[in-house]
Simulated scan of single mutants.
Amino acid sequence: MIRVRASQIFTHSMEDVVAAKKLLDAGTSFEETVEKYSTCPSKKNGGDLGWMPEGNLQSIMGQDISEDKLGEIIGPVHSQYGYHILRISEIEIEKIEGPFTPDLAMEEANRIFPELHSLLFKQFRIGMPVTPYKQEETINSVCKNHNVSIQSALDVLNKEFSEKNISIISCEELKKQIDAGNKPVLLDIRESWERDISKIEGSHIINAENNEHVLSSFQKNREMVLIDWKQDRSPSFQKWL
């Protein structure tokens, strides 16, 4: 996640913000110009707004925030609140580890994390929840097409993925694990007709009615695997674990 610390000169007057910018261009310090023209309560702190999430400042600036903007005078910028002249004094980048990278194909990303599609739409209005991505599209290309910060999108995806702790294991990988003597608790979340077609010996049927009873019979620190060939129902069932 990216946090920024910024200062601003804020006014409702177009004439004042233009005059403030001319004063800055002439070499007057930011703090002096704040004192003369700003009407924001931050005026008493030299215009310092303190630390804030990247998105808060980005919504005013209308552009991505990067380290090359440190110390730069940005504006005047007009927002729904009034006129701003901004200066970014510090940037703090907290890298969130996860499987999502800029060049990862959207199809693969959606396979890893079935909720990705709806999450991107909810957070950034990227795509429609039911519209499939094209084969050549990557997280980076999709973000660029929608004017969304790639770092913001990656942070949201990796954070959400990490919190849900979702991982996908293939049938072959699961068999190797069981054959090696490391058998997890197998919870079958499929419909009855799906189990009639194929089932794994030793698995336990779990649903909304019996989940408390089934889970109470196992130690909480046991590894558990949800059996779901579609890979899109697991997130809904995971709230029971």
Rank of each mutant, 00 (worst) to 15 (best):
M1D: 09
M1K: 12
V4S: 07
Q8D: 07
S13I: 05
V17S: 00
V17H: 04
A20P: 06
K22T: 11
L23C: 03
L24H: 06
F30Y: 13
E31P: 01
E32G: 00
K36D: 09
S38N: 01
S38C: 00
T39Q: 05
S42V: 10
K44A: 15
K44T: 14
G47A: 03
L49H: 09
W51A: 02
M61N: 08
Q63D: 06
I65P: 03
G75W: 00
G75S: 04
P76E: 01
Q80Y: 15
G82F: 06
G82C: 01
H84D: 09
I85C: 11
R87I: 04
E92C: 15
K95F: 10
D103H: 15
L104K: 08
E107K: 08
R111F: 01
R111I: 04
I112D: 09
F113C: 09
E115T: 15
L120M: 10
K122Y: 14
I126N: 12
P129I: 00
T131P: 01
T131R: 04
Y133L: 07
V142M: 05
V142E: 01
H146S: 06
S149V: 00
A153W: 09
L154I: 12
L154T: 06
D155H: 14
V156T: 11
E163R: 13
S167Q: 12
E173M: 05
K175E: 07
K176D: 13
A180P: 14
L187G: 02
L187T: 03
D188R: 00
I189A: 01
S192F: 15
W193L: 11
N211R: 06
H213D: 11
K220I: 13
R222N: 15
I227L: 02
P235N: 04
F237N: 12
